[in-house]
Design a binder for these strands. Structure first.
Lengths: 342, 342
DNA sequence: GTGAAAGCGCTAACAA
DNA sequence: TTGTTAGCGCTTTCAC
């Protein structure tokens, strides 16, 4: 017995297809009495609508674009790869995704790009960008042009746009601190924190959460001022090498940004991989290798595939005027040790 | 410019729809020359097939069933909930899922159920069951009837069925040991391991991995014999209470099975929550609460939603004779601390 | 070997 | 307020 269709409903309710469709889509122009007759039939037959067929007939396509910075970090490549991989699912749901890239830190170029977008506004925009006044204004313009905007990886709380898709970076910092504090022996030691730039909201939030937990639970550890290395491996190597020899009391490192290959290099050169406990961010070839050979002790990560799929779901729901289930769209802050590497 | 359809291909290749379809689906009865003409058109127009429309026309539906034990653990409820939640995605992909339940540990009942299934074999079966000869034979029978079988949560390596969907339990045990070993101070202490039953493959594997790492890295810790409590909270409470007072040297607990509420109760009653470090399995209301209030220190988990979706994808791919991408179907062994609870 | 035409389950003009 | 009808993109008989 195959599942009931609109025809079956029409027949048992004694109305036409069009009326069934009107009731199904809550369109006006049907007598209350007829509505309930149709609904009874729906109930009785246990009808569930074939979404694929509906979308086919509706000819609805979703035109989405992703805007990402072009910084050469591994995480960004993974994000891009995740977008390509979503192509299959994406085609099935009748959405088309365009990816655009702007020079990292050049918010002028970014604003221009978004201005151009507002000329031919897509249905939705997934945007990974720093939170500056210029960006905020550009976001407002695109939204005014009718595009749903969802911030990705880095939140844009003041732009008045959609549900943020990414991890809670304060929580990520707290997680890092908990791991570092518990992995280190209960004895005085210094802890080095490396970030890209403290003006990047996500890195600042990680540092904030990290400091909270350090103060709350690990008073015996001395947290040093943040080393800002702009996610550049060469700078990380230089600075860490310098500090490692200057402060022999360094027992832990929290790498909140990118450029981890520079950190690995500095630690190995100083022969410090064993005596220093390291927590880093994002699961990449580099951090995976460092975890495997014991240079790093834990990695905090957000799954690029989940981020992309969630952003797409959120945009689609927004365009369709549907609610999203927040608990389902929360991106998890993952923890990896050598033992649970995927 | 909307995307090209079979009509466009037919037109530019100068053939009919039917021929295009034959080429697209690699059906015989087309001259090689015509094939390449069609393929050229496909290439030239950048055609990508509309899977949803294809499935609609094809009238293909996937008839799947899930068989689960009826043990009253929270994890199983979550798994069931995940199955219901997958209904939306499931309908879209034209699959129908039936859920059947057997009395836990009653492999006779399970075998009967599977025998009945073989009478009207579904396209696919996701099976969570212990690995016994009877079960193995039942699986073989269902497979002989033409059903694709994928083992879920607990592997069935000797039954010759599909790709296992679940975590690597040896790795999970190793992860638990690493966390416990690194969280505890470097000093002699005893470690208690609680499992449901060592004849359950997953629990035995966790214990194996746990012991490996304990031996490799944490020789100063004494791992006690496994406490088998059959996932029953009351038994856990009784046994743990007894051991806690008998062995004051217990500094860590690894709870590899269910019944965690019993463990929480015993620890609280003994006032031991602070001095004992606890690692447990599965993220449930109980373990979440214990993590939040500091009774538990970490939880190792597998995501029920991922398991269900992955099992469905694997079954569908198998039925369609498609390859799955193993890396995409690997279920992650997740780690939760209080700080990164979702 | 190839093509014409009738659907799949649903939506949306346009009539009535 | 309701019904008729022609599709959406693809598959599949059945003729030629």
């Amino acid at each position: 017995m195959s599942r009931p269709t609109v025809h079956d409903i029409a027949q048992t309710a004694g109305v036409s297809l069009a009326t069934v469709d009107r009731v199904l889509n809550k369109r006006p122009g049907v007598r209350a009495k007829t509505i309930s007759r149709v609904n009874d039939a729906i109930e009785q037959l246990g009808y569930v609508r074939d979404v694929a067929a509906a979308n086919l007939a509706r000819q609805r396509t979703y035109d989405f674009t992703c805007i990402l910075p072009d910084a050469p970090t591994e995480f960004l490549s993974e994000l891009r790869a995740a977008i390509s991989e979503s192509a299959a699912m994406t085609a099935m749901e009748r959405m088309r995704i365009a990816v655009r890239t702007y020079p990292a830190d050049d918010t002028h170029a970014l604003a221009d790009m978004m201005g151009a977008l507002a000329k031919a506004p897509p249905d939705g925009l997934a945007l990974m960008a720093p939170e500056t006044p210029r960006v905020r204004d550009a976001v407002r313009r695109v939204m005014a042009a009718g595009t749903s905007v969802v911030p990705v990886v880095a939140d844009l709380p003041t732009a008045g746009c959609g549900h943020f898709v990414g991890i809670n970076n304060v929580a990520a910092g707290r997680t890092a601190a908990t791991l570092l504090g518990r992995f280190l022996p209960v004895a005085p030691a210094s802890v080095l924190v490396i970030a890209g730039s403290m003006s990047a909201r996500d890195h600042a939030e990680r540092r904030l959460g990290f400091d909270q937990v350090m103060a709350e639970r690990f008073g015996h550890l001395h947290v040093m001022p943040t080393l800002e290395c702009h996610d550049r491996g060469d700078l990380v190597t230089a600075q860490v090498t310098r500090l490692l020899s200057k402060h022999p009391g360094i027992g832990g490192v929290y790498s909140a940004g990118a450029g981890n290959h520079g950190l690995v290099q500095a630690l190995n050169a100083a022969g410090a991989s064993d005596r220093v406990t390291v927590i880093a961010h994002e699961l990449t070839d580099c951090t995976r290798a460092a975890l495997t050979d014991g240079t790093f002790d834990a990695v905090i990560a957000q799954n690029p595939g989940h981020i992309v799929r969630s952003a797409l779901r959120v945009l689609k729901a927004d365009v369709d005027g549907m609610e999203t289930i927040p608990s389902q769209e929360r991106i998890r802050t993952e923890i990896f040790l050598r033992e649970n590497l995927p």
